[in-house]
Design a protein around this nucleic acid. Structure first.
Lengths: 166, 166
DNA sequence: TTACAATAGTTTACAAATGTAACTATTAAA
DNA sequence: TTTAATAGTTACATTTGTAAACTATTGTAA
């Protein structure tokens, strides 16, 4: 209808294009904020304030070394704090600052407004089917062999276990 | 079921995560090729061999300045040629080489195998609903104001039309 | 016909994202 | 109590994103 020719595209490619369109609209709708990216991290913290960095990585499929820079940036913008967990000093809790809480509110509002807008032409039943399939696809993908870019816990990064001699 | 807690996520974020998982699996399944990325460009060329660069940009939501480097790389790998259109010498046609055709075959096979695999647990009706909703979401997003990152033809990059004085 | 605008693509420069490896510190396990 | 695993950091190379200015070519309206 709106395209000369509908091009059959793999679902991974379609999903990538959708996300690019989505974040283009999102960043436009949030351009009044001084933060210009990492919105999904704030969105996640809204419901998981005080979690550690690895938790954010796992849920948003972001590499942990990238996450260090993300959090550094959010700290520089005074949106979050990094606090060592006294019960397990390896972990750093990420907590929203007062300013972070305020901006996160706007971020969440924008995310929800866009979802509401683009789903407005879709009935409830189809929406539920769509969401259910989307989750199933991710679930199925996690079962397949992958160059796991971010699920660091899967890696055998260190040298393989040396058998004890003696 | 498989997650402690299902976290409600915006659809743009879910789509991004899905695409990361997907391309992780894809690059694993294609690691025998010497090409290690830009698979979606080859996939697109499979059905649109000989199109110009802008056409690829529009369909894959890739910026045209990035596309220059992508094509440069594919040429260096001897997978495509860049040919000036004699009828409109601004346009450069991108055509698959013999080697490109061969590797594209494998790329297409891998894409289709992954789609088949991850949709195998989903019935035909739900699949069709899913695809239809996915297309509608992209369509709806295109109607919203955006920081258009790649749809260069939308931009008013040049200085605005100067009214003729005289 | 001739300015001017629009289109397709390129180049440059810099910022940010990604991928990889090696690293510290801390906790868990054999 | 050594060894491994986990959480996070640092460093570096490569790739990608972004913006502006640029060439070359074609379309168009006075």
């Amino acid at each position: 209808m709106h395209n000369k020719k509908e091009i059959k595209m793999p679902v991974g490619t379609k999903a990538l294009i959708l996300s690019k369109l989505y974040y283009g609209v999102l960043s436009k709708s949030l351009e009044r904020l001084d933060l210009e990216r990492y919105y999904s991290v704030l969105y996640f913290l809204n419901e998981n304030n005080g979690c550690n960095q690895q938790c954010i990585c796992n849920n948003l499929a972001i590499d942990k070394t990238a996450m260090v820079k993300v959090i550094d940036h959010l700290i520089k913008m005074d949106l979050v704090d990094r606090v060592i967990n006294p019960d397990d000093r390896r972990e750093h809790f990420i907590t929203l600052t007062k300013k972070g809480l305020k901006q996160t509110e706007e971020v969440v509002r924008s995310f929800m407004a866009i979802d509401a807008e683009i789903f407005s032409t879709i009935n409830k039943e189809d929406l539920e089917t769509f969401m259910s399939v989307l989750d199933k696809l991710s679930f199925n993908l996690k079962a397949l062999p992958s160059n796991d870019l971010f699920f660091n816990y899967k890696k055998t990064a260190r040298k393989p276990r040396k058998p004890i001699q003696k």
